[in-house]
Design a protein around this nucleic acid. Structure first.
Lengths: 348, 348
DNA sequence: CTGGCGATTTATAACGATATAAACGTTGCC
DNA sequence: GGCAACGTTTATATCGTTATAAATCGCCAG
């Protein structure tokens, strides 16, 4: 409290006796005056440079601690070019419940205790996804970038790899050059979801995929199709509706399906909203879940623990994904690392 | 593309002809060389200072535009002390679905087109809530602070008011000094929710409140109690369970209530998770929603549009709250504003 | 006594921006 | 012609830090 107090008393006192305690923010100069050393020496001492006598280093650190010295980020950044910032590029309008929150949770945990700050760089969907990335690189707004919704031939990945700029993306690409990523095994998700439905007695499966442009849409499709072919059951894949569609549009689509004579009786739901839409449709058509209609949903929050009738789910830990992305990115920023060590696939 | 391209070709070219185009990041110096003016003049010209000839200002701006000049934030920050940063203090572990996401959405919109960046400052619940605020102030990590979960005698508010540091909090206090805030009318929410339940035929109401230490818990309680007293119905207020409790704990609590002979038949749900818990409990006790049990929930996402049976809801627009907080904070940072103009109450 | 070496410390400059005060060329007036 | 005043531009210093090169010291060998 005492040292952090910037109140009137402290400020006045500091005007009287130069600037030894409290009052103005302490800088290297403050420590230099206090110890009788040069600013340069203090800087090097705090950096633990071996050329500075051990005793000096300890004394400086002691004083720095006492007066609560914290380096000025702006000055460090100007001088070194390092920002101590991690930029998370987000389309803040995404409706996916809590997706961002969970990732931010994990990222915060990874950055805890480091000098790194988390900056949210919004990407508004009316501009190319590469714009914010280019801007961050060009103006050195961050030491590393994290982004989501990766595409098979993602331009952002290409750009970042080309310039050797530290980054981790959520999701993989199909590019020839390996690059850092954290991904969830959506192939396995869709595969196992479909098999579970079939095992429950479903004879015609349905799936709503993410927009085609995202890599994980292909993974889900592939997992789904593999299971379907293995078992030889019929299926339907939504054409004009995706997991990104408004929830009403999703529900309308499922409504139409339910009204068919040949309606699907097993649904793979890649998102919580779409799962709720399927449940709503079933309910409105007087179809009983678990008997007339089966459902396996991806669960990313505690929501489904409270949903009745109970829904079969497969869990994706987004908070852990954030944690991983943070850790890997810090590792990469720390120095060159084989790209293989910067890739993580979350399994079921 | 051409100017943003930092590739090998550009870099080599710039080495040849000093640094006129592409290559290294353009600075005031670059513009100065290009125009034959002094760095100072360029700076003032871009600041649109009236002492600089209009023609010069236009020429400088033209050149700056052409080479894609963007001021270096670190340098500006070091020199002026302004950070161009807004800090959002968040407990990233909060389970409230998408609460943070919605607010970030609104904030991003408010900050769009301004030079301000949004930094997420995590507040881990094992440390005092005032720590991150003090740290931000002391080290001038931001020009303004936004935080949530305001308490009646909030220490953060006191500190910030005392030092006249720009901030907006989500929620009000009961402090004597007025301060900026954005809040949702939780009194009205609880009041109307309760009245609706009674109008639907409920004879014993139940409510789960936020933790007592938050101001909005008192508001909700007050609204609830007012309605209950006006109508003279019986009621129950959860003692050991709050909206912050794990969703399982909430469900267990509601389970016990449902098992009572004298069970409540009307539930005011201040959160989406607690609403789902009530629904789950009702379902598990074979109670029919809308007949045996009534429910009015606060809706903060599109989720309840897909929940069946349909649930009565009252909407709280968190994205708008974020937008308001951003706008008001920018206004405050811009210069002294009567505190009354920095307060907003979102009504139903 | 001088030169030189190793161990420490320090002076200087620079990062890119801006606030301050000084300098500049032009004009008009006495 | 000299000088003040004006409109405009520029030199200088500074924010806090760190990389580089230089300086200082004690000490020992020659």
């Amino acid at each position: 409290m005492s040292l952090d107090d910037l109140g009137e008393r402290g400020r006045r006192a500091s005007r009287e006796r130069s600037a030894d305690r409290a009052g103005a923010k302490p800088t290297l100069k403050t420590i230099a005056e206090l110890t009788g050393l040069a600013v340069t020496t203090v800087s090097r001492a705090l950096a633990d440079a071996p050329q500075i006598a051990l005793e000096t280093r300890m004394r400086v650190r002691q004083v720095a601690e006492e007066i609560g010295y914290m380096p000025d980020r702006a000055a460090q950044r100007l001088r070194t070019g390092r920002t101590n910032v991690i930029s998370l590029v987000l389309d803040p309008h995404e409706e996916i419940l809590g997706y961002a929150t969970s990732i931010i949770d994990g990222l915060s945990e990874a950055l805890r205790g480091t000098p790194y700050h988390l900056v949210i760089t919004p990407h508004f969907s009316d501009t190319p996804a590469i714009d914010p990335v280019r801007h961050i690189m060009r103006n050195r707004m961050a030491d590393g970038i994290i982004f989501t919704r990766t595409e098979p031939a993602d331009e952002r990945v290409k750009l970042l790899v080309e310039h050797d700029f530290p980054f981790i993306c959520h999701g993989r690409t199909e590019l020839a050059t390996a690059h850092p990523y954290v991904d969830y095994d959506n192939y396995a998700f869709a595969y196992h979801a479909a098999r579970r439905l079939i095992a429950s007695g479903a004879t015609k499966l349905s799936i709503i995929l993410p927009p085609d442009r995202f890599t994980f849409a292909q993974h889900m499709r592939h997992g789904f199709m593999t299971a379907v072919r293995e078992e030889g059951v019929r299926f339907e894949i939504a054409k004009d509706v995706t997991l990104d569609s408004k929830s009403d549009a999703i529900r309308d689509y499922v409504y139409k399906q339910m009204a068919q004579a040949d309606r699907p009786d097993g649904f793979v739901c890649g998102g919580e909203v779409s799962a709720m839409a399927v449940m709503a449709s079933a309910y409105d058509h007087d179809l009983e879940l678990g008997r007339d209609v089966h459902l396996v949903a991806k669960q990313t929050s505690g929501l489904f623990d409270q949903v009745r009738p109970r829904v079969e789910t497969i869990y994706e830990d987004l908070s852990e994904a954030g944690l991983l992305m943070g850790r890997l990115l810090l590792k990469r920023i720390g120095g060159p690392v084989p790209v293989g060590e910067l890739q993580a696939l979350q399994t079921l």
